[in-house]
């Protein structure tokens, strides 16, 4: 019953998030067309007050750039939300990692941590629980971010090794132990998720560096 409740809770959360991002995209679409129309009308005033026209064009370009960025975030949030609909499915870990990196980039940026990705193209798909996979990756990156000093680096990589897909999360510039108040609970949850997904998680510690490797069987 507990598992069913959790699955239903996640599915509801996913539906809410998906609806929310859909609305967000509608707003972005209106802003996009409105600023596009401003640009079109401005083009019709060629020859008039060039300095002001130049300023407006620059502002419109900034709006366009921000809409593109917000749209990428909304798209990833929406895909992330839809993953909660399906407890088990065939998916590409790169898609899951792309979504997560976009969504957690802010946590890293606030600590001036560089989040890099090195994802192997044309990776085979895996059959697993996508939201559990994303939870494990989130929890592990969150731990690294907590331990990372300003100016540190996190490298998220994916590759194929024989019949497996390997995801590695490498933190550079770490100090101390992870001492989040919820650390024990979180570690237990990660261990449970790893066991439930039947994958392996390996942690290697070096001086000021940590490498977490997840090995998932390819389909």
């Amino acid at each position: 019953m507990e598992n069913t409740l959790r699955d239903c809770q996640l599915a509801s959360l996913g539906k809410m998030l998906a609806g929310y991002t859909h609305e967000l995209k509608n707003h972005l679409a209106i802003i996009n067309e409105s600023s596009g129309l401003m640009g079109d009308l401005l083009d019709m005033t060629e020859g008039e007050d060039e300095q002001t026209r130049k300023r407006f064009k620059k502002i419109i370009a900034t709006i366009g750039e921000r809409i593109s960025q917000a749209n990428i975030m909304a798209r990833h949030l929406s895909s992330f939300a839809h993953r909660m609909d399906m407890p088990l499915s065939v998916f590409n870990v790169n898609d899951g990692l792309d979504e997560e990196i976009t969504l957690i980039e802010r946590f890293a940026r606030l600590k001036s941590i560089l989040l890099k990705k090195n994802l192997q193209q044309e990776l085979p798909s895996i059959y697993s629980n996508p939201s559990l996979f994303q939870f494990v990756v989130f929890a592990e990156i969150h731990k690294i971010v907590d331990r990372c000093e300003n100016g540190g680096e996190i490298i998220v990589s994916s590759s194929q090794q024989d019949q497996d897909v390997v995801v590695s999360l490498e933190g550079i510039g770490l100090y101390g132990e992870w001492q989040d108040k919820s650390s024990l609970q979180m570690s237990e949850a990660v261990n449970y998720a790893v066991k439930k997904m039947d994958i392996s998680l390996n942690v290697e510690e070096f001086e000021n560096r940590q490498k977490i490797t997840l090995t998932l069987p390819a389909v």
Partner: peptide, 15 residues
């Protein structure tokens, strides 16, 4: 159903 979206897009295409 998004009136502002439809109108702005229509005007841009009319141009």
């Amino acid at each position: 159903d998004e009136v502002e979206f439809a109108e702005a897009l229509a005007e841009r295409m009319e141009i």
